[in-house]
């Protein structure tokens, strides 16, 4: 069972993602900010991270750079309310991005693709 870490400062998003992704068979853990995120990744060893771009105290794109520098092959999906972030070159270090929605089919599809890509390289 793949473990997914959801990093988002909005509680209802964390709840929504947790419920729906757990139903899909994923083991979901959450974090409400970017505080000590690298340590959390080190400890929990998730297979994939879903990262909110705009949190109150943290910039998701900066966190993405930190994650990539330390865990070069950990899949990260950016979760965002708007797609204007694409103008920032940092965003290309993400596996995929999804615009936040109550319909999680796009997110589930991207999770499956990112994990498939990771596992295919590990074989």
């Amino acid at each position: 069972m793949a473990k997914i870490l959801v990093v988002d400062d909005e509680e209802h998003i964390r709840l929504l993602y947790s419920e729906e992704l757990s139903e899909e068979g994923y083991d979901v853990i959450t974090a409400d900010s970017g505080y000590k995120l690298l340590e959390k990744i080190e400890q929990e060893k998730p297979d994939l991270v879903i990262l909110d771009i705009k949190m109150v105290d943290y910039n998701g794109l900066d966190l993405l750079q930190d994650i990539r520098a330390k865990f070069f092959d950990l899949p990260v999906i950016l979760s965002t309310a708007y797609d204007t972030f694409k103008e920032d070159i940092k965003s290309i270090a993400a596996d995929y991005y999804v615009v936040k929605s109550f319909d999680l089919s796009e997110l589930k599809n991207k999770i499956a693709m990112a994990l498939e890509a990771k596992y295919s390289q590990e074989e």
């Binding site: 520098a69 070159i89 940092k90 270090a93 596996d95 990112a114 498939e116 295919s120 074989e123």
Partner: peptide, 14 residues
């Protein structure tokens, strides 16, 4: 033949 989809790399020098 076994590779599916693609992965990003880190971006350095920003």
């Amino acid at each position: 033949r076994k590779i599916k989809w693609s992965r990003p790399t880190a971006i350095f020098g920003l």
